[in-house]
Design a protein around this nucleic acid. Sequence first.
DNA 1: CGCCTGCTTGACCTCGCTCAAGGCCCGTGG
DNA 2: CCACGGGCCTTGAGCGAGGTCAAGCAGGCG
Lengths: 249, 249
Amino acid sequence: MPPLHPLLLKLERALPLTPAERTALASVPIRVVEVEADEQVIRTGDRPSTSFMVLEGFLATSKLTPEGRRQIMTFHIPGDLPDLLSLHLEVLDSDIWTLSDCRLAYMEHADLWPLCQEFPRLTAYLWRITLVDASIFREWVLNVGQRPALPRIAHLLCEIMARMEVAGLAHDGSCPFPITQSVLAEATGLSIVHVNRTLQDLRAQGLLSVGRGRLTIHQRAALADLAGFHIEYLHLRTLAPGWASRTTT
Amino acid sequence: MPPLHPLLLKLERALPLTPAERTALASVPIRVVEVEADEQVIRTGDRPSTSFMVLEGFLATSKLTPEGRRQIMTFHIPGDLPDLLSLHLEVLDSDIWTLSDCRLAYMEHADLWPLCQEFPRLTAYLWRITLVDASIFREWVLNVGQRPALPRIAHLLCEIMARMEVAGLAHDGSCPFPITQSVLAEATGLSIVHVNRTLQDLRAQGLLSVGRGRLTIHQRAALADLAGFHIEYLHLRTLAPGWASRTTT
DNA sequence: CGCCTGCTTGACCTCGCTCAAGGCCCGTGG
DNA sequence: CCACGGGCCTTGAGCGAGGTCAAGCAGGCG
C-alpha cells in the first residue's frame, strides 16, 4: 500500500475528516494496475465488483451507435472515479477507454459498502462526485446540441483546462493533452476534418496552442467568452481563479 | 397528508421496505403545489432547501447558451425527482420548466437528511435514482451528437414511451404527450421546421402518431430499430416488456 | 369573430461532412 | 545511418443534411 491512500488524499482535500473516517478510508485495500493507451477497461454490459480511481493518465467514457459511430461523453483525469456509478448500477451502459498509458487504483465494492454504511458524510461526498459527473453530462448535451463548431471545441478545451488546474496538473495555462483530433471529433460530434480546421482557427486567433501532447491556453478570458464557458457547472468548492463566474459576466 | 405518501409509494415499488423504513418515509412532510404550464420552477443559481417529486404533469431540465439558444437535457414525468441533486449540489446549474400543468410534492432537505443518515438502503436507492438520470444524460449526448434527425427524434420518443409505461401512464402503446414540436426541437437540437418534417416522415412510415397531446407508437420494434434504442440505459429493474434488449439484437 | 399558439409548406442557403490526397513526425528494422 | 511504414495532421473540392426566412393554415379560446 502506498504511503498515502489515493481516496483518502482526494477526500481530505474536500472536507476535514475525523480520525475515524481517516482510518476507515486508509484501510480500504487498493490494487494498482497499469494499463496501456487505447485499452477498453469497461465495456457496456459489464457488472464490475470494483471501482477505480485514476492515478495517472486520461480516459474517456463513450457509447456506440448501432452503426458504429462513437460518442465520447466525458473525459477522466487523475483523481476521477470513472466507474463509481457501478456501486449502485448493476449493469454498466457505457464503455471506458484509456486515451494514454494509465495507472488505476482498484477498490472492491465490498470494501466500500461498509464505509458508506458507517460514515454518511463519506457517502454524501461520493454521491456528490457522481452528481458533478451528471452536471458535466448536462453541459455536454448543451455543447453538442446548441453550439457551433468553434465555441463547441473551445468549450471542451476550457473544461479540460479548468479540471486539470483543479487537479494540480496545469501550470501557466498549460497542461498535458494526450487527445488526438480524432478523439476530439468523437467528443464533439464533429468530423475530424472540421475539428482540424476549427483548431487552426482558434490557433490563428492566438487563443491557444494544441499539439504534441500539450494544450496551452493563451487568452483564457477571450476563449471562455467565445465558448460561453461558465465554470459553475463543475461545482468546484474551491473557487478556480481566472475563470469568470456567471455573475461576473 | 394524502393517504399514501408519494415517496413511500415510489420506493415501495422498487425495494421491499422494512416497517421502520416505511414509517420513517411516511413521516416526511410534503407540501403539494400546483403549477401552471410554462412556469420556471428552478432557475440556474438557485440554492433550494427542498426537493420535489412530480405527481402529475411534464417538466424539462434545460440550459441556455449565452446567445439564448435553449437545450433541454431531459424530461420529467410523474414519479420523477427532478431536483433531487440539490440535496448535495449547493448551487443548481440548470433550469427546470413545467411543460404542462403540474402537481408537485415538495420535501424539505432537512427532513431527508436524517432519513439518509439512518437508512443506508434508502440513501442507496435515492443515489441510484440520480445515477439513472446521469445515464439518461449520457444517452442524450450520444443522441444529439451522433444520430441523424430521424433516429434522433425516434429515440427520444421511444424513451418517453418506455418511461411512461414504467410509470403506468401508457396503455396500448399510447400516452399523454404535452410536448410541442418546438419543445421537441429544443430537446433534439434541431430546428422546429426540421422536427416537423421528420415527424411527418415517421408518421408516413406508419410507425407512430403524434399530436393533440398524445403519442401513439404503432410499430415499436421497427421504431426502436430505426432509433437504435436499447432500453438498458434506463436501468429498469423490472424488465419492460416489448422493448428489445441489447442481447436480443 | 378574431386572435394567438402551434403546425405546415416552400425556397434558398450554409455549416459541417465526405472523399481523396498529401505531408510530417517518429519509431523500427535493415 | 537511412529507408520504410504508420499514426496523425493538413488541405482541397464537392455535396448534402439541416438551418433560416417567410408565409399560410388550423384549431381552441376569450
